[in-house]
Design a protein around this nucleic acid. Structure first.
Length: 918
RNA sequence: GCCCAGGUGGUGAAAUUGGUAGACACGCUAGACUUAGGAUCUAGUGCCUUUGGUGUGGAGGUUCAAGUCCUCUCCUGGGCACCA
């Protein structure tokens, strides 16, 4: 029998489906293991070969873990709410649910063709009301909770109300915007509206006037991680800052815990670092300066209190309320003019203008608390309103931005930390001794910071303070295709629905566009009396890993039993592009559920593996300008040509299939070619480049095509063979023959050309056993390290090393099990050929035995004066003297001794013999 | 500017963590076989001036021994970016 993958693969896919081979249940007799993939957004374009990389890796690991005796949960679902389906709906009027459903079907078909071992009985879709009921539920829980900084956890809002009733808010240490204090009696006298307004400030899901990223082109607000370089991540539309009343989640309350949690999980350092950056912890002090001739206190945040004596000016953010309070009559006109200019700038302009220094003097002065000197207060757009206090003390000698500002406006610069040269640039390093700083003189920076902090607190000027860059997450989009927020309004205040009213289903609308008044699309729905915004994209993906544990539960997100069994995700595989989005939101969401007792673990994803992106390998042809003649790459410089993308599917090894090219697009029907001679043949050579895989670049390779031509097993093996899983790499079909050949060879060990079954019951010999156990050892170790490319190599080496004509069952059977995670279809077929009735999935991973691998001799490199000369087979148990003797007896030794005497013999067991002569 | 990864043949990449650099595969070269298939098999393939020399981006250093450790430096990819 020929290796007929096109017949084998559908056969086993059907078998797995019919026998529900991969269905997981809470089997308490086995240890659990949870392997999760980041579920895909089902886009209309279907899968390209880059998508399955991570899924193949996780599937291989899943199958391996099953063989190792684990009860593995390996589910799949779809992140189905999102912009593309909605944009498509706007254009065509087709309901996004229909588009989404079709796309999901395509995705599932493609997945199944690759032979993934998903437990489809647990499939979830975020747009399914039965699913988003629990997204809405979590939102309501957040609405009904506040963050207690005292106990460092979320607590029910009812606790807070009870506390307010008994003693007001003075002793409450909560994450909130409210600063006004009230007593218990005052609270009781507040009207319902006043009470609710106050409570809204404390809720973890809250509605407030917030500065948001508004994207006019998309007609919606965006979260910080959805904005890159001042434009929207999707579509690249400009984004502006705007104050709007919006729903937010108080993720900032969790900043420290999100930071601490990183220490406990097995993620790559680069993702952890990205999250640390995003959270942006900085430890410093808040200090209040007196404003001259005024009762006002000018509050600033600094991480360098040690440089206090170097302050020569203060800077306010343009958007600070303080601006109007301190500006003098004389400067008012200048200040207003400046604010007008700043206001017109979008975020983008501000980013682009970083080097342009702008600012204006307010006319007011602070009084330096230690020197008593007057310090001018400026306004500058390099200070941000939303961070710290929106104001800084400027130390030009030791901060590059302050330095640039001071130079530009001719403000004095005072050096207070020695060690640098401040004539050309500031000295920002936290190293050196303090000078010109009164009581700090002579101290090292670190000690000076501590001393200044003490002094500031002693004099009541301020206190130590930690700031985080992490902002609360805007939790609303003015869009149709998302989860409705389960909220209605009474007296202009929000209230959430009761549990029995969930899910609040997405209503039908006549068009998916905003109304003429500029309200979100939900305003078009008849009789809709709820919140008009929907939830953002990250809502549905924040707790889906919990839902998989118990996906059909109608009473809870998941039952306690299911959660206590599966607990957390042991291995999470997905792209690193979610580092500051989904992976932060999900951790936050889980911590919130943990606080309320709905999640049993502090961190949801124990180990994270980020598969590298597979880029496209684009091919180009060169058209002579104004003609339909194409010039081969080697000759293109002799003509005036235009570079054009060509479909990579009609290019083989960079040589263009010219006939296929003529048929490719109608305009090339009569194309002519100027070819070049390659190996005696006239060929058309294309150039290539590595780019992102996309339709417009004609470099998309469809996995279905590979499956048809080589089989899914080859695709799986090849994608793993391409290189380390975490590395980004271009797709190149050139090497696929190699792994395909390997599969054919392995098949050939079971069947010959005439379909004769060759496997025998013969006893294997020592050499064969050695090869087998070497392979088991290598494969087992590599599997644990996710080094799948070297595992594939190990298989190939095994086949090369096995003696010709080895068809012994005792060798082939364990090899089949090793191969099964990679090439499951072929493994199943061969497994059943070996006489097994059950799926290879239920076989157990072979154990290697050291005894087959032990060698009695070891090849010792023998070196003279450090120079490697020859290899010598020595018994590993030889004594030092015996080794020395053996070396001297070797015929080459005298040659290298060259009449000199041996001074020293260094023997590193199992490593090397080094002779020092002289 | 700051932070994180990486730099090894024509190509994708290995290297038991300091011990024969380039496993495995692609490609290429030569040959065999053939009912000519995009098949299979055999041998060779880092580079050079080839009985030898040299070689892991570059320059130093530690060591009997360095792709691996240390110092400096140059590139490439990714992230953050007026965060005080």
């Amino acid at each position: 029998m020929k290796y007929d993958y096109n017949q084998i693969e559908p056969k086993w896919q059907k078998y797995w489906e019919e026998n529900q081979t991969f269905k997981a249940s809470e089997d308490k007799s086995k240890p659990k293991y949870y392997v999760l993939d980041m579920f895909p957004y089902p886009s209309g374009a279907g899968l390209h070969v880059g998508h399955p990389l991570g899924y193949i890796a996780s599937d291989i690991y899943t199958r391996y873990k099953r063989a190792k005796g684990f009860n593995v949960l390996h589910p799949m679902g779809f992140d189905a709410f999102g912009l593309p389906a909605e944009q498509y709906a706007i254009q065509t009027g087709q309901h996004p649910a229909i588009t989404t459903e079709n796309n999901i079907k395509t995705f599932k078909d493609q997945f199944n063709k690759i032979g993934f071992s998903f437990d489809w009985s647990r499939q979830v879709e975020t747009c399914d009301p039965k699913y988003y009921k629990w997204t809405q539920w979590a939102f309501i829980k957040m609405f009904e909770s506040w963050y207690d900084k005292e106990h460092n956890k979320a607590r029910p809002i009812t606790d807070l109300v009870a506390a307010f009733e008994s003693h007001g808010n003075s002793s409450i240490n909560a994450s909130c915007a409210e600063t006004k204090s009230f007593t218990g009696d005052e609270w009781k006298r507040f009207s319902e509206k006043e009470k609710q307004t106050i409570l809204l400030n404390y809720r973890i899901a809250f509605l407030a006037d917030t500065t948001v990223n508004w994207c006019p082109a998309l007609g919606t607000v965006l979260a910080n991680d959805e904005v890159k370089d001042g434009v929207s991540e999707r579509g690249g539309h400009p984004v502006e800052q705007k104050v709007m009343r919006q729903w937010s989640l108080r993720i900032s309350a969790y900043a420290q815990r999100l930071l601490d949690g990183l220490e406990t999980i097995d993620w790559s350092e680069s993702i952890k670092e990205q999250q640390r950056n995003w959270i942006g912890k900085s430890v410093g002090a808040e200090v209040a300066f007196d404003v001259k001739d005024n009762d006002l206190k000018f509050e600033i945040f600094t991480t360098r209190p040690d440089t206090m004596f170097g302050v020569t000016f203060m800077v306010l953010a343009p958007e600070s309320d303080f601006v109007s309070k301190v500006t003098t009559e004389g400067q008012k006109a200048h200040v207003d003019a400046y604010l007008e200019i700043v206001k017109k700038k979008t975020d983008r302009d501000r980013l682009a203008d970083v080097k342009n220094i702008t600012g204006v003097f307010t006319g007011a002065y602070c009084v330096h608390p230690f020197t008593g000197k007057e310090i001018p207060i400026w306004i500058g757009d390099y200070v941000l309103g939303g961070y710290g206090t929106g104001a800084i003390m400027a130390v030009p000698a030791h901060d590059s931005r302050d330095y640039a500002f001071a130079k530009h406006f001719n403000i004095p610069i005072i050096e207070v930390v020695s060690g640098g040269d401040i004539s050309e640039e500031s000295y920002d390093a936290k190293e050196g001794k303090l000078i010109n700083s009164g009581f700090l003189d002579g101290l090292e920076v670190k000690k000076a910071i501590a001393k200044m902090n003490d002094e500031v607190e002693k004099r009541g000027l301020g206190k130590k303070k930690t700031n985080y860059r992490l902002r609360d997450a805007i939790f609303a989009r003015q869009r149709y295709w998302g989860e409705p927020l389960p909220v209605y309004f009474k007296d202009d205040l929000p209230y959430t629905l009761k549990m029995n009213q969930l899910p609040l289903e997405l209503p039908e609308v006549d068009a998916y566009l905003p109304t003429e008044d500029g309200d979100p699309p939900l305003a078009r729905a008849e009789g809709w009396e709820y919140e008009l915004s929907t939830m953002p994209g990250f809502a549905g993906s924040s707790a889906y890993y919990i839902r998989y544990m118990d996906p059909h539960n109608e009473k809870a997100l998941a039952s306690k039993e299911a959660m206590d069994y599966w607990k957390d995700v042991d291995l999470y595989v997905g792209g690193s592009e979610h580092a500051t989005g989904h992976l932060i939101y999900s951790r936050f969401w889980n911590k919130f559920l943990f606080d309320l007792g709905f999640s049993p673990v502090k961190e949801p994803f124990k180990k994270l593996v980020n598969q590298g992106m597979i880029q496209g390998r684009s091919n180009f042809v060169y058209r002579k300008k104004g003609t339909n003649t194409f010039v081969s790459a080697g000759l293109k410089d002799q003509h005036d040509t235009t570079e054009l993308h060509v479909d990579v599917n009609i290019v083989d090894n960079d040589f263009l299939d010219m006939e296929a090219f003529k048929k490719w697009l109608p305009e090339y029907k009569d194309a002519e070619f100027i070819t070049e001679e390659v190996d005696g043949e006239q060929k058309y050579k294309c150039t290539f480049a590595t780019e992102k895989m996309s339709k417009s670049k004609w470099n998309v390779v469809n996995p279905d095509l590979i499956c048809t031509r080589y089989g899914a097993d080859t695709l799986r093996l090849y994608e793993m063979f391409l290189g380390p899983i975490e590395q980004a790499k271009p797709w190149n079909t050139n090497g696929i023959e190699g792994v395909h050949r390997f599969l054919k060879k392995f098949w050939g060990m079971f069947y010959d050309q005439e379909d004769k079954y060759l496997v025998t019951e013969d006893e294997p010999n020592a050499e064969e056993l050695k090869v087998l156990h070497k392979t088991i050892k290598k494969a087992s170790e590599d599997m644990e390290n996710f080094s799948f490319n070297t595992t594939v190599s190990a298989f190939m080496i095994a086949l090369n090393e096995l003696p010709k004509g080895c068809h012994k069952k005792a060798i082939l059977e364990p090899l089949t099990i090793l191969l099964a995670p990679f090439a499951p279809h072929q493994a199943e077929e061969l497994w059943s050929a070996l006489g097994h009735k059950e799926s290879v999935t239920f076989s157990s991973w072979p154990v290697f035995e050291e005894k087959y691998l032990v060698e009695s001799t070891y090849k010792y490199p023998v070196s003279f004066n450090g120079k490697m000369r020859y290899l010598l087979d020595l018994d590993i148990n030889m004594s030092k003297d015996e080794i020395e003797k053996a070396v001297l007896e070797h015929s080459d030794s005298q040659k290298y001794l060259d009449g000199k005497t041996i001074k020293k013999v260094i023997i590193v067991p199992k490593k090397i013999v080094n002779i020092v002569v002289g």
